[in-house]
């Protein structure tokens, strides 16, 4: 035991400890931290995989879905678990990979009634949801609870990712005030997705969580990365705080989760 680390932990985290920006102190921060993954699908699965490997001590996972064979083209942690709840499958994976990580499994759908109680326990939120209603709900709840959030989304060969630190930069509603009208955007089943794409975006989201917990580097606050796998290009789009933002602007119209409508305007990705 050196510096509070056991022999196995010293070996497991040695490549982190060697980094001057991490060290034993940073690794301890990771072990004492809690991250919540909303969704254990295309984005959530790779994020869970690397957050667990990094030794983020508490990993909350919320998903009400069951592993389907069509998921395995991109959600590799669920291999061999077709028909099992995604949350249980993810938990099995994490337990096999890293016994230091405690999984808090929520086999339910995130909604207006449960979101505030759930996110309160976490230091960083990863939104890997697949629909606009949840994205806006997560954004608003994180602004109200002052929780840092990584937003990621994918479509065919393209992905986008940004980090929201409420009141320190723009939120998701500064960028998109409302969801697009129903039917305007095709669903994942209609549009398709290149299997490796969510891996890239989900791991960028995990990277942001790890950097935030460690307090190192520059977060994607006020910046959105737009990734195009076909061109193999990463573009950065600057996002400004919108003083007319309905949730984090100067005179917000949205003041509570309970009084806002988060209708399933359409399902995307």
């Amino acid at each position: 035991m050196i510096g509070g680390f056991g022999e196995e932990q010293i070996r497991r985290y040695s490549r982190h400890i060697i980094l001057p920006e991490v060290g034993g102190k940073g690794q301890k921060k990771l072990l004492e931290s809690a991250a919540l993954c909303i969704g254990a699908g295309g984005l959530g699965a790779p994020a869970i995989e690397y957050l667990a490997a990094a030794g983020v001590g508490t990993l909350g996972i919320i998903d009400d879905d069951v592993v389907d064979l069509s998921n395995l083209q991109r959600q590799v942690i669920h291999g061999g678990n077709v028909g099992i709840q995604k949350v249980k499958s993810a938990e099995q994976f994490v337990n096999r990979l890293n016994p230091d990580v405690n999984v808090v499994a929520y086999t339910e759908r995130l909604n207006q009634d449960n979101i505030l109680g759930i996110i309160r326990d976490y230091d960083f939120i990863i939104d890997g949801s697949d629909n606009f209603a949840t994205r806006f709900l997560v954004n608003d709840a994180c602004v109200f609870e002052n929780k840092p959030l990584s937003h990621g989304s994918i479509f065919r060969f393209e992905g986008q990712v940004t980090t929201i630190v409420p009141h320190k930069g723009p939120c998701y509603r500064c960028l998109f005030e409302h969801a697009p009208p129903p039917g305007m955007v095709p669903s994942c089943q209609e549009a398709g997705v290149l299997g490796v794409l969510p891996g890239i975006i989900g791991i960028i989201q995990a990277t942001e969580a790890i950097k935030y917990i460690l307090g190192i580097g520059e977060l994607l606050v006020g910046r959105l990365i737009y990734y195009d796998a076909l061109n193999m290009s990463f573009d950065e789009i600057k996002i400004q705080w919108n003083k007319e933002c309905p949730v984090c602007g100067e005179a917000p119209k949205i003041r509570s989760i309970a009084e806002t409508t988060y209708a399933e305007s359409c399902r995307v990705w």
């Binding site: 050196i2 510096g3 680390f5 010293i10 070996r11 040695s14 400890i17 060697i18 060290g23 034993g24 102190k25």
Partner: peptide
């Protein structure tokens, strides 16, 4: 691990 353990001890 020689370095890793030395570094942890120094911390």
């Amino acid at each position: 691990y020689t370095f890793v353990k030395t570094k942890l001890k120094l911390e």
